[in-house]
Design a protein around this nucleic acid. Sequence first.
DNA 1: GCCAACGTTGGC
DNA 2: GCCAACGTTGGC
Length: 143
Amino acid sequence: MGKSYWLMKSEPDVYGWDHLVAEAEGTWDGVRNHTAALNLRSMKKGDEAFFYHSNIGLEIVGIMKISQPGLTDPSDPTGKWAAVKVKPVRKLKRPVSLKEIKATPALEGMELVRQSRLSVSPVRPEEWATIVGVSKRKAPGTN
DNA sequence: GCCAACGTTGGC
DNA sequence: GCCAACGTTGGC
């Protein structure tokens, strides 16, 4: 099966892109929502994920890859919740904001938009390509 | 099994 | 700070 794409949210004042880069490899744990956990369990090694800054920033800042899938959440004493390990791949040339995503017709079906509270969501290949494309262009309204 | 109350997340 | 969306809990 081919590579899948994901979007993972974190509050940057708690754990942001720079934290992940500083660590070189991070454990994505603490997810306590069944839909998000199901998505975590569906990840395969080598899958790629957008790193999204929630609450502060509200934008996709970088791309990471799943380095170790199928882990048990080390922060969960019951051992029922899932986790994965991730490595940073690259920072986007410029962040792509939620506002811009919502303003892009090709992205209005994204889980990020449809279910805003979901912290780990799938991204369709065409949506992934659209966002990467947008990140290579100049931000709207700037010169 | 239904549903009201409550808690949490996250955008605005 | 507010509120909508969603999930969980507990009374009945």
